[in-house]
Design a protein around this nucleic acid. Sequence first.
DNA 1: TTTATAATAGCACGATCGTTCGTTCTATTA
DNA 2: TAATAGAACGAACGATCGTGCTATTATAAA
Lengths: 241, 241
Amino acid sequence: MATDEVGSMQMNGRGARRTRAVILETALRIASLEGIEGLTIGELAKAVGMSKSGLFAHFRGKDNLQLSVLQMAVDRFVDAVLRPSFRQPRGEPRLRAMLKNWVEHLNDQSRLPGGSVLISASIELDDRPGVLRDFVQKAQKDLIRNIEKAARIAVEEGHFRDDLDAELFAWSTYSFVLGYHHFKRMLEDPKAESHVRRSFKGILEMARAKECAARQDGMKAKKNGFSKTAVKKASAKKVGG
Amino acid sequence: MATDEVGSMQMNGRGARRTRAVILETALRIASLEGIEGLTIGELAKAVGMSKSGLFAHFRGKDNLQLSVLQMAVDRFVDAVLRPSFRQPRGEPRLRAMLKNWVEHLNDQSRLPGGSVLISASIELDDRPGVLRDFVQKAQKDLIRNIEKAARIAVEEGHFRDDLDAELFAWSTYSFVLGYHHFKRMLEDPKAESHVRRSFKGILEMARAKECAARQDGMKAKKNGFSKTAVKKASAKKVGG
DNA sequence: TTTATAATAGCACGATCGTTCGTTCTATTA
DNA sequence: TAATAGAACGAACGATCGTGCTATTATAAA
């Protein structure tokens, strides 16, 4: 496949770090397509243009390679989704930014041609105890706690109702993300993005409402995200907008 | 490592079908744990107590074995979730039965020790074109269309509001199922089942409401599934009620 | 009891897996 | 210029993968 990414040129000193970065970059792309367990040293070496053994020397074993790839996936996620959102005002704006960045991150075909490595790793590893599973589990728990915290801040700020169950809010949010990933990739549903945006809109309204989502917003009930007539508007409007 | 499921006893004629059934039973269990791609003929043969080649002869190739396993998973799902629900009255009761059966089916550890084969297969196969992917995709689309149809019937029967977007309803439902699967298995969240039941309750109320879910039901807003104070009641009440 | 057939076992194949080893090449340092 | 350390290579290891071929066994039909 794509040979000569490193080529035959020799590297030394700081060049080793560069090589490692190139390897991980390619590894992340392959893991996105084949899964973290489907990532193979031979295939990776071929894709990166070096020998198996030369590549292997950069990591002390396959576990280490996989762990490095997962760590890179987490870093990418934090950089693309979480960090930018923390530059937004506390509360609902920050939460909306997170959701917006999240969808856009999942849409980034150039970096994740085969979908999120962390989501697929979750399913591959959920029955395989070990370092990898622990890592992914911790990463996901941290993420969910981030959503929860953002929701709680939105309550503090008065954006959300004060009896909001932040845990359930985070749970629903993450479920919708999984749904988006699944409907888009496996089911190839062209409406997937519209659906996830409308779902986000729905739980945001629900969280905002003191009594009734539709009324609080001055909207009619049929616009609360579950009606057919709201489709046109919803698909045009961005979640984070 | 459970040897001697077939043992050394020889089988004949109709016994062959029986052997095939035993093989598939074991294969389904392994595929639940290791994934449909992680299912290996050698491991399966050992688990079932026969030789690789002897087992192999029952299927003309690994594709065929995998396909048979997936077909069995679909049949099981239909038997456990869909078929019983069609014995319920049209509309919302039938829909509630589907959701209830679905959760209970996912909880069936004896049959699915490693979670749903179809869900994990979705992620394994979403980038691997071929017969297997086509099969899983079709199975899932059929299922989702079943939910949609049940929702539309509930509209016809007057249980749900007439402007309900059945597609989005089915989308949300399936997303919550994925969320449940994920939170329960990977994140080991003890509240996963409570969350999925409350989420189902929420979208059912949303779908039922003509104007505002909380009002229509004569309930206060803080009981619409997103408030902390509703937790105790919700966890005690079953989805299918 | 003999015969035909279906079911299983035994064995070996080519490929690929992760991993190890010794070697070569290069750049830096003494 | 000589010595050293780092990076990559090629070859090979034992295992296991899916898959054929052939022989053996057990059952069903004669």
